[in-house]
Write a protein that binds this DNA or RNA. Structure first.
Lengths: 181, 181
DNA sequence: GTATTATGAATGAACG
DNA sequence: CGTTCATTCATAATAC
């Protein structure tokens, strides 16, 4: 793969007050580019029910996939994270889109336009072909679906959950003379 | 100060009062997007040893950082939580990726691939005399903001956000027999 | 060559 | 606190 050495990320953070510091670092960060075989294996694993592989699993997968090309554990990690997230995202969108037609009488919403992938079937936990992980590989219980509807937006937490009133003092005296502290 | 070079960041980050005014169901409350300065200050505080700021400190920090842009106490709180957690995670897992490749040939590959490892900024010097705004008298001089500043450019962070602590035996048989492939 | 899409990577927010 | 979710950013790949 040729290197189009032009990849310098510009995180143009435009803000009212923002003054982007110097970002003139042409750091070339190359991201992992999975091979076809790697993607295939990962996809199969995913379809087999693996959603959130453990560290151990990730390492094993990474090791195996390294045979097909350069890869790191983090790539596997991210891959699963993204894949899972995007599947949900897609399902959610479809669901919302079809939300008008659905009737409470039939819970089958297979009329989605993208159900090809969305359906994904309820992977059963019996994947003999993937004996790689004898452990609780598929304990994700993704079907649980977690009804975190969050109002679709984002919860506006007025009082955020931190209550550090306790004299934790896990940090040194910290002179923190920040002129304000 | 030159202006933000990039015209990107289309994410209409209205940093007003969360009033996006998105027509329709646009009740989207965006998440905090720290400015470069804010990140810098927070990073400095963290590097100075602050790990779990008290409520009071959070308040003060937030107040000060609000000068650079919209920010809330909860943002500061979360920032420290995330930063601390991720630092730890990164450190726990380092180069297990190579661990497998380098077979037990007693041949330590140390610079063959991009499987770099942790940046290893073992600072954590707990500077008691921290100054929030390092005008120029910041104690440390070495590890300034080489790579830890992953907010404005290509972050070449190698480690990934999940812990791997398993002593991990060499490399077991690995029954990844995806025969169906 | 430019616009769009797909997706790797990053991180704020929040859960358990 | 460690882990997970959701959203966003950046870029390789691809369409136009």
């Amino acid at each position: 793969m040729e290197e189009a050495l032009s990849g310098f990320c510009i995180k143009g953070s435009v803000r009212g007050n923002g003054n982007n510091g110097s970002t003139g670092t042409g750091t070339k960060c190359e991201r992992w580019n999975p091979t076809t075989e790697q993607v295939k294996v990962l996809t199969d694993l995913f379809r087999s029910g693996l959603r959130t592989p453990s560290t151990d699993q990730i390492q094993k997968i990474s090791t195996q996939l390294s045979f097909y090309g350069k890869i790191e554990s983090k790539n596997v990690f991210y891959w699963f994270q993204n894949h899972k997230a995007r599947e949900r995202q897609k399902r959610r969108k479809v669901s919302i889109d079809e939300n008008d037609l659905i009737s409470r009488d039939n819970n089958k919403i297979t009329s989605s336009k993208e159900y090809f992938e969305v359906k994904e079937y309820q992977l059963e936990r019996v994947i003999e072909t993937l004996q790689l992980f004898p452990l609780n590989s598929f304990d994700e219980t993704d079907q649980q679906e977690k009804f975190i509807f969050h109002a679709s937006e984002c919860r506006e937490i007025s009082t955020f959950p931190y209550r550090i009133s306790a004299p934790e003092m896990d940090h040194p005296p910290l002179d923190l003379r920040l002129s304000f502290l």
